[in-house]
Design a protein around this nucleic acid. Structure first.
Lengths: 238, 238
DNA sequence: GAGTGGTCTAGACCACTAT
DNA sequence: TAGTGGTCTAGACCACTCT
């Protein structure tokens, strides 16, 4: 299936670490040994190991080797680009999505700026509320540039939009900028969410880009503060 | 100073993009051209370009070239490992640090767990309040494993602890796990911060590791919600 | 001194985009 | 078809850690 050697090697070792075949704080085999094992060049092994390092599996120590980092299985994959659906499945909770609105609108000036739109571009607006364990705790407002997403429907939004975009529309998401702040609830928040006396909402603004570096989506995800958790893994340069 | 070619090239191009010598959405010179320009091999150029890509400067598009990504100069460097001091300098604000406590303590069981300590290990506890534009809005609680940080003083904590640890102690920080949640204020929060009627604090828990993958610091940074902002840049795998 | 990872090279072939 | 980035190789030298 995958024909990239370094990915095959990365996936194999990552799986072994997940399954604790390598104990935390142990050393992996050296690059030279792995090179022999996988019958490949050292640079290819190094590509795989660098991926493991970037994803928090190992820490490379010069002169010593590659140390396996202690991981909580559920800690890491939360950072980055994660859809509500994936998250819900991971958390194994009772979840429900209520689609309030799916429509093609003329963007106001704020949206125009956020999505870097021309004056005639229209956008798809999707407003959804996420119900977790019987409480409406997340309000998701998605805006898609019509140029990249010509059609949406309530049915698609009920399910996973990303599955549709990537699977059927063949769009390929590559990176996202995220900004997290804590704000006062708006009237909309108060109407659509079960705020239960909370005085703040956590606002996550997401700018999502495609493979060719074009900005195609702006999202605001508004969380009741008790149902918000964000995990990040940061590696210092070099 | 720096004798790594790919870093020199990375820094030079990053600076050029910061200074808008390359316009957003333009293409950089091809890898072949850069290779000639810098009189080096293509793999070295690729290393520099991959760093630029990982740090949100460019997006590489197969068959086309490297597209410069629109950046807000102040957006990006906030993610990852940033000390309060760097942040304060960047934001150019009036800031003040009040050191409430610097002492060597026996860790309670929570700390023991967070820092993965043996039963006889002691920890340095540092409690500081950050005053931004005349309001006490951040409470920083730092805990250092004594094994790695044998000595601290009020003077050191008044300034930048990291400058001391990296400059004088020669410790080298390499990566951190971060967890962000929103909590009720504790009594300590209420006593030490100007909460001004806010009902929540943003809690950032940080686990900081050294070069050799040993955990040496646990930090809780507790922010008044109106003074909190977190920016993240996530690139999808491959 | 032996073994480790970090950097760098010169060249090859492939997949994709433009025209 | 020419030009782009993506992958892979085999080899070299260096800086570091361990004993």
């Amino acid at each position: 299936m995958i024909n990239k050697k370094y990915l095959v090697i990365y996936n194999e070792i990552a799986k072994q670490i997940d399954e604790k075949l390598w104990e935390p704080d142990q050393l992996l085999p050296s690059e030279h040994e792995l090179k022999e094992q996988y019958n490949t060049s050292r640079e290819t092994i190094r590509k795989a190991l660098n991926l493991l390092s970037q994803n928090g599996y190992i820490q490379k120590v010069r002169g010593k080797g590659s140390v396996v980092i202690p991981r909580n299985k559920y800690d890491f994959p939360v950072s980055g680009l994660v859809s509500f659906k994936e998250l819900a499945e991971k958390m194994n909770n009772q979840t429900k999505t209520i689609v309030h609105d799916v429509s093609l609108i003329k963007p106001n000036s704020y949206l125009k700026q956020q999505l870097q739109l021309n004056s005639k571009d229209q956008v798809w607006q999707v407003i959804r509320v996420r119900d977790l364990d019987g409480g409406k705790v997340i309000l998701d407002k998605d805006f898609f540039n019509e140029r990249y997403v010509p059609f949406l429907s309530k049915e698609i939004c009920q399910d996973s939009i990303y599955a549709y975009l990537e699977g059927e529309m063949n769009l390929s998401i590559s990176f996202a900028k995220k900004e997290i702040t804590v704000d006062e609830p708006t009237e909309e928040d108060q109407q659509l969410l079960d705020l239960d006396g909370f005085h703040n909402v956590v606002v996550i603004k997401n700018y999502v880009y495609l493979d060719d570096a074009s900005l195609f989506q702006y999202t605001e995800s508004r969380h009741r503060p008790d149902r918000f958790r964000f995990v990040d893994f940061a590696r210092r340069q070099q």
